[in-house]
Design a protein around this nucleic acid. Structure first.
Lengths: 152, 152
DNA sequence: ATTGAAAATTCAAGCTC
DNA sequence: GAGCTTGAATTTTCAAT
């Protein structure tokens, strides 16, 4: 996509919207001395052009009964099986992220499980039966922080 | 936190809100045959109790000029330096996630850079000067998917 | 959970540069 | 035309019930 030109209104909108997707547009409007409709139109445009990829609510995994988080690195038997493996991972709801990587692993996956036994079950029963090859598991004890790329 | 009891209205709210944090509450209300205020009050309660951790807008990193994404695993020289290292990572804006892990690495970090040269610069000038020890870099060619834990 | 009122969002014109 | 404003219909939010 590449970097574009954003004016101060765009930047203020992106900053405030990043922190809180439900911030009142009029609050942004008042800070920038424009009408609420102007803010709305800018957001429409930023969304249409792919700068804003959507608005999502962050659900606490623990509140849904998912107490364990892990990253799993895959060493694929055959790199060509990559797309098939990704497709199968997509069908495992506990897998919440999947990256095609280079370096130590071929694929890096993030997943949540109800507990350690459930985690082991997913890895053994799901990961090791899709012919993906060897895996390495990194249990995440704590997500220290999580944020987005800096605006401008 | 632990799993709780959610009725069908809670579940519908969480499902619709997860996909789109700005979905009209009245749309949820009409599907569930309640008033908009009822939906609003449920969301307030889910937020206050920590089930919903907030609403965030997804900004396209590429549109901000960040074209490269990587995970970096840290082998800490001294595990006791953990908190100091995390604190220093928090001050590097390109670092968007930080996990305290067990397994192959002590810390796993996600970061964005403008390009490969910038990535190398962050790793050399920032990571290798905070006394964190050796690192391994996994470049993410493609984020295949990203989603949240299943609702109930 | 509902009602009703105040504030905010959204959309269609219309205005200005 | 691009980008704003205004005004009206819908939606969100909050207090009272």
């Amino acid at each position: 996509m590449g970097r574009q030109q954003y004016d101060s209104l765009d930047r203020k909108i992106l900053e405030m919207l990043t922190e809180n997707a439900r911030v009142p547009f009029l609050e942004i409007a008042r800070e920038c001395n424009v009408s609420g409709a102007a803010v709305h139109q800018r957001i429409q445009k930023l969304t249409a052009s792919g700068v804003i990829n959507g608005f999502e609510s962050l659900i606490n995994p623990s509140a849904m009964g998912y107490e364990t988080c892990a990253y799993v690195g895959f060493f694929l038997n055959e790199p060509s099986s990559y797309e098939t493996v990704v497709e199968q991972l997509r069908h495992i709801p506990e897998v919440v992220e999947c990256h095609y990587t280079t370096g130590k692993y071929d694929l890096l996956v993030k997943l949540y499980a109800r507990n350690n036994a459930h985690m082991l079950q997913i890895i053994r029963d799901n990961f090791q039966t899709i012919g993906a090859g060897r895996t390495e598991t990194l249990i995440s004890f704590k997500e220290e922080f999580r944020r987005q790329v800096p605006i401008e």
